[in-house]
């Protein structure tokens, strides 16, 4: 049996922990943008490394991705990828209320992603009695991006060079709809199998309380 196949109860518990984390991340986003964020039920699925490569490679245009590593206790660690579609990343300046040339699009994407990732993971961690630290966020582009510069890694290269092996990742599909704009971003958590097993063990401890 694949150790990453959660039971129905584990999936429900994980979904609820993610809901709470998403709620607080959205609240931070709403404060940052000084607007209201409509929340939808997030979908959570496990995706294979092949799926992720195929998804990234199938994009005809560039996809902006911000990657940030996270490290907690009990071997819980991984890499969070926030993936934006081009139509959304181009509108971020309007969304963030920056003046033209105030910040580059790249800096804006990193700003926004850092808020969403760290708020989400801090709340996620606190619910499983853990605490996260983070590496600096990095902006990546898909390998076929016309916007890529020599200093930017491609997503595929970056994923290949992770310090851990992973076969399955947790994909949390988040849709943030802001009052005057809407944009979608997928949060993909690349988590090594050992860490997912640890998360499942923590979830089991929580479930035992009920």
């Amino acid at each position: 049996m694949n150790k990453l196949n959660f039971t129905e109860d584990q999936q429900d518990c994980l979904q609820e922990i993610i809901n709470v984390a998403m709620g607080q991340a959205s609240d931070q986003l709403a404060r940052y943008l000084d607007t209201f964020v409509y929340l939808k039920v997030p979908s959570i699925e496990q995706v294979s490394s092949k799926y992720l490569s195929d998804t990234i490679n199938s994009e005809a245009q560039s996809v902006a991705v911000v990657s940030q590593g996270f490290f907690g206790y009990e071997g819980i660690r991984g890499e969070a990828l926030l993936m934006y579609q081009p139509k959304d990343s181009d509108r971020l300046a309007d969304l963030l209320g920056y003046e033209p040339d105030e910040l580059s699009v790249e800096e804006q994407i990193i700003d926004l992603s850092s808020i969403l990732t760290t708020t989400f993971l801090n709340v996620f961690a606190s619910q499983i009695n853990n605490q996260m630290s983070y590496s600096a966020p990095r902006l990546l582009f898909s390998s076929n991006s016309e916007n890529k510069t020599s200093s930017q890694s491609s997503i595929s290269e970056h994923i290949e060079h992770q310090s851990f092996n992973w076969d399955v990742a947790l994909k949390v599909k988040i849709t943030y709809q802001v009052t005057d704009y809407s944009f979608n971003c997928d949060m993909v958590l690349l988590i090594p199998e050992s860490a997912i097993i640890n998360i499942a063990a923590v979830i089991d401890r929580i479930l035992e309380e009920y």
Binding site: E16, N19, V20, M22, G23, Q24, S26, D27, A30, F36, V37, L39, Q127
Partner: peptide, 25 residues
Amino acid sequence: ISADIQPEMQTKVLDLGAKAFLRKP
């Protein structure tokens, strides 16, 4: 009882008649 803790949402549900807003968990 919700994870959507934005102040605007809290005001909205109270305006719609809810007695209180409690944040999850």
